[in-house]
């Protein structure tokens, strides 16, 4: 028996969400009194692979092949499922990232395993059961999902589990997989990087703005504040509907759901659909000129005032702090 965890890399580098998944899976492996095996696909330096031991991996399996340089979800899910079978894994853990969302369901079907995606808790294994919490009804409720199959697949929500450094180095082994030509039907034509900005789904801080900003020309100060805080930029639905900002910045029930440590909402009134997409943020700060804006009801800190005066003051205060 073992716990298998798949660690994503971006251009050969592991990300924080990968270490979160490792720390989470390590705790599960300890609960089950078994080994933690990490799997990496693609070209990652040996030292980086070994360093996964510092987050609890006992062994690291690596697959590096020309065909696998970019993400192909059929091939990747086939490899992860094969590794799970070879290691006799009873639990398979991934990140609930864009990539993980494409992989986990395919792996679950291959292994005839129940899947809890967007997991926000460790499994409760009392009475021989296996129950994990996730957010449902757009974060208006939490469900306790019992997985009833022998093998379990968990996709961990970003920012839901703290990274724990355990010390230690892992042994690294090459993993041989059986390639199947039909797994390579999808051809990647192009990868377009939006920019070097912080990516929204796994951002620790998000600065978000709404119609209160009056027009797309006023987003400069939002971007400046975000850059100073190391934050991702987001917006409300009316803003992306009006094409002031791109769709990929829209957070809310029909956009991206985020769960950062800090969410700063500027000029967003707080429609129920918007709040649904951000309510699992740890701290919410609301800046709005309308003291009756519903967003204040779910905020931790609020300032009633004009964004055009307050945001430049915030920028100045952060700059003063940093210098």
């Amino acid at each position: 028996m073992s716990v298998l965890v798949y660690i994503e890399n971006t251009e050969g580098k592991f990300k924080k969400s990968g270490f979160e998944v490792l720390s989470y899976a390590k705790t599960i492996a300890n609960q089950l009194n078994t080994n933690l095996i990490a799997l990496s696909i693609g070209n990652v330096a040996d030292d980086d692979l070994k360093s996964l031991g510092n987050y609890g991996a006992d062994k690291v399996l690596t697959v590096n092949h020309q065909n696998l340089k970019s993400f192909v979800n059929q091939a990747y899910s086939a490899i992860i499922a094969q590794a799970a079978k070879n290691s006799d894994a009873s639990v398979v853990v991934l990140s609930n990232s864009f990539t993980g969302k494409g992989l986990a369901p395919r792996i679950a079907v291959k292994l005839q395993a129940g899947l809890a995606d967007g997991a926000i808790s460790l499994p409760d294994m009392a009475d021989g059961k296996f129950i994990v919490k996730n957010n449902v009804f757009s974060s208006k409720a939490i469900a306790f999902v019992e997985i009833t199959s022998a093998i379990k697949v968990l996709a961990l929500m970003p920012n839901a589990y703290k990274v724990v450094e355990t010390g230690g180095q892992a042994t690294v082994e090459n993993f041989d997989y059986q390639a199947n030509e039909s797994d390579f039907k999808t051809i990647i034509k192009e990868i377009v990087k939006a920019s070097d900005k912080v990516s929204l789904p796994d951002a620790e801080i998000v600065v978000s703005a709404g119609r209160g900003l009056k027009g797309p020309e006023n987003w400069g100060m939002i971007e400046e504040l975000a850059a100073l805080l190391g934050a991702a930029v987001a917006c409300s639905k009316p803003v992306s509907d009006a094409h002031w900002r791109p769709h990929e910045e829209h957070v809310g029930q029909t956009g991206i759901t985020v769960s950062p440590n800090l969410y700063i909402a500027i000029g967003i009134s707080g429609a129920i659909q918007h709040i649904a997409g951000v309510s699992s943020s740890k701290i919410i700060v609301v800046i709005n000129s309308d003291a009756n804006a519903p967003f204040f009801k779910v905020a931790d800190y609020g300032i009633v005032g004009d964004a055009f005066e307050l945001v430049p003051q915030l920028i100045a205060a952060v700059k003063a702090l940093k210098s």
Partner: peptide
């Protein structure tokens, strides 16, 4: 046969009420 089932729901923990900061004291928020 399904492979999972929801056995219980709960409401998310409600936030304590908002701490308002005066617009003249932005530094306090920082």
């Amino acid at each position: 046969q399904g492979l999972s089932k929801i056995v219980k729901f709960e409401s998310p923990a409600s936030r304590t009420s908002v701490q308002l900061i005066d617009a003249s004291e932005v530094g306090k928020l920082i």
